[in-house]
């Protein structure tokens, strides 16, 4: 045991917990998404497997695992295999720095948010590889749309996060939460919050910005050719990203784990954290089932003509106020 320091064991345990959290969370989110979609359209959603269909996603997951992964002709096989892994692994690893509560955080990196952003930027590459290697026009168009969209929306997203980072003077997720002890940043930086939220919808390819996988035009976009667990990994990655967006929004704007005191606040702060995260995720689902998909030119106009100028002005005002 001399080779295994306690720190190593701690990281091992926390990564197992994180992976299980991601899987469990994807299951819950798929269920929530289908239920919310159903009720918004005044139908009950899944009802058959288990009481009120709560076991539906479990069964779906088992089905996906049991399915064969089909490799179409003339694909670029190595890239075709790497792409789902590249979509899934970074999305999970990024959870390492999320502060669920004061003591529930795998690692508190000095530059937690940059760590998350660096890993999130790999998502685009995964989508691109998936689209290109599938040798399918729908996949390729989906991938190209995704790249254009992600590059464009990364700018307002970073601008809005930067405005908050100016105020905290730290890139560590934990200290960002602690800086919000007196006042949540959503009150101080409402514009940044809105910009971040909208940009993150585009970054995660969620409606109304779901052009990369627009099912009515591109069948399924970049993951058209994927089946079985390869498709499942894309799906897991997408839901992991949704929670990641919720977690970043909570950490940056909604005060992280802070909330009415509970017993053992050091750990039970995770309850408030998750409540806020799931509220954000719920609103993402709510958005999806409310708004129609934007057109591509609208998407780009919205980013470059509204989000970027507002982000820049917001950043400048923040800097001015902080310096004066």
């Amino acid at each position: 045991m001399a080779l295994l320091p306690p720190e190593f064991i701690r990281i091992l345990i926390s990564s197992v917990l994180i992976v299980s959290f991601v899987f469990l969370n994807a299951m819950i989110l798929v269920y929530i998404e289908r239920k919310v979609a159903g009720h918004i359209q005044r139908r009950p959603g899944p009802m058959e497997v288990g009481p009120h269909g709560i076991l539906q996603t479990l069964i779906d997951g088992l089905k996906l695992m049991g399915k064969q992964i089909i490799f179409p002709d003339n694909i670029d096989k190595p890239l075709f295999c790497i792409a789902p892994l590249l979509a899934f692994v970074p999305a999970v690893v990024a959870f390492v720095v999320i502060p669920f509560s004061p003591k529930l955080q795998a690692v508190d990196l000095d530059m937690g948010i940059i760590f998350i952003l660096a890993l999130a930027s790999l998502n685009v590459l995964a989508i691109l590889l998936a689209g290109w290697s599938s040798n399918n026009k729908y996949s390729l168009i989906g991938a190209m749309r995704s790249v254009a969209q992600n590059i464009a929306y990364e700018i307002p997203m970073l601008l809005s996060l930067l405005a908050v980072l100016f105020m905290t003077n730290s890139l560590s997720m934990k200290s960002i939460v602690e800086a919000q002890k007196p006042l949540w940043f959503i009150v101080v930086q409402p514009v940044a919050f809105l910009i971040y939220f909208i940009a993150s919808l585009a970054e995660t390819n969620r409606a109304p910005f779901d052009l990369p996988e627009a099912e009515s035009e591109l069948t399924a976009g970049f993951h058209t050719e994927y089946g079985g667990m390869a498709y499942g990994l894309f799906y897991l990655g997408e839901y992991a990203n949704m929670v990641m967006v919720g977690a970043i929004t909570t950490t940056f704007f909604l005060g992280g784990w802070s909330g009415p005191p509970l017993p053992y606040m050091e750990y039970s702060g995770a309850f408030w954290f998750l409540a806020k995260v799931y509220f954000i995720v719920f609103s993402m689902i709510w958005f999806r089932w409310t708004f129609p998909r934007v057109r591509f030119d609208q998407l780009m106009n919205f980013c470059w003509k509204i989000m970027v100028p507002f982000g820049l002005v917001n950043l400048m005002i923040t800097a001015l106020v902080l310096k004066i």
């Binding site: 709510w286 409310t290 509204i306």
Partner: peptide, 27 residues
């Protein structure tokens, strides 16, 4: 921008209202 945001909010209000209305489909 203002009108756009307003119409988006109206849309959200409509869907959240529908979410809590009873189900109309027949199982």
């Amino acid at each position: 921008i203002f009108l756009g945001a307003q119409s988006l909010l109206v849309g959200l209000w409509v869907t959240i209202g529908y979410m809590f209305k009873p189900i109309v489909t027949v199982q």
